[in-house]
């Protein structure tokens, strides 16, 4: 049985990724951030053996290291790591002063979170399939940047892509393979607690986004699992299979 660790598994794409791997017979270590949200617990009833729920806050190195220690008690090796946890940051309305210090929050989750995960879990991955997967975004692609306002989210994803570039330069020659996935514009449920309407994908009464989380996860997992003859290039591929520049 292969093992995968997934960050941000509480809801949306993360939760759907967990389901995808469970259905394929993997042992999933689901990183839990929202302690009150019961969706992972409900899934655990269906997969009592194959699903392990691990407290994981990628914004704190102690939490990530504790999660790695917990996983190490259960299994000898981790085959795949999936960094899905993301923070979005507040967009300041046009014309208002931007508080740039608030930009540190999505940066800390999206970019530094990936570094924390890789640094802490890498010792467990040596004997496994050695695959590192990341939910990135076209939002972080500088060469096709199209937004007209400064975005903390975009900047954090640019930082993530850069961190992954440095990791790739070092780890790919050591036999690690990388998957960077742009899920498309995914509808996200803003649920945090039990009793929150599930799924509540609407924002101010409008359905925002193009794809359902389960569609994004269903597109991601085959890419994460497939072996490629061209592992010596770092490529960002979207949910429709198209490659993006950086």
């Amino acid at each position: 049985m292969k093992n995968v660790v997934i960050s941000g598994a509480d809801r949306n794409i993360g939760l759907e990724l967990v389901k995808q791997f469970l259905e394929r017979g993997w042992h999933v270590f689901a990183g839990r951030f929202l302690m009150e949200l019961p969706l992972l617990d409900e899934l655990k009833e269906k997969y009592p053996q194959a699903l392990s729920i691990v407290p994981l806050d990628v914004s704190k190195e102690e939490s990530v290291q504790a999660a790695a220690d917990l996983v190490a008690k259960e299994v000898n090796c981790v085959d795949m790591l999936v960094h899905n946890a993301a923070g979005f940051g507040q967009q300041t309305p046009e014309g208002q002063e931007i508080d740039f210090s608030a930009f540190l929050t999505p940066y800390n989750i999206n970019a530094l979170g990936a570094m924390r995960l890789v640094h802490s879990f890498l010792p467990l991955m040596e004997k496994g399939m050695r695959r590192l997967c990341f939910i990135s975004s076209e939002a972080g692609v500088v060469s096709v940047a199209h937004r007209t306002e400064i975005s903390s989210y975009c900047m954090s994803k640019t930082a993530l892509n850069m961190a992954l570039r440095l990791m790739f330069n070092q780890l790919q020659p050591m036999g690690y393979t990388f998957r960077l996935f742009h899920p498309g514009w995914v509808r996200s449920a803003r649920i945090e607690r039990p009793g929150d309407k599930v799924p509540s994908f609407e924002v101010d009464g409008k359905l925002v986004g193009k794809f359902w989380p389960w569609e994004a996860a269903a597109a991601a997992v085959p890419q994460f699992l497939e072996d490629r003859e061209w592992e010596d290039r770092l490529v960002l591929i979207d949910n429709e299979g198209a490659a993006w520049p950086f």
Partner: peptide, 12 residues
């Protein structure tokens, strides 16, 4: 990773 995001922000 401290400098790459400035490229994004400058593009925006």
């Amino acid at each position: 990773i401290s400098k790459a995001p400035l490229n994004m922000a400058m593009n925006q």
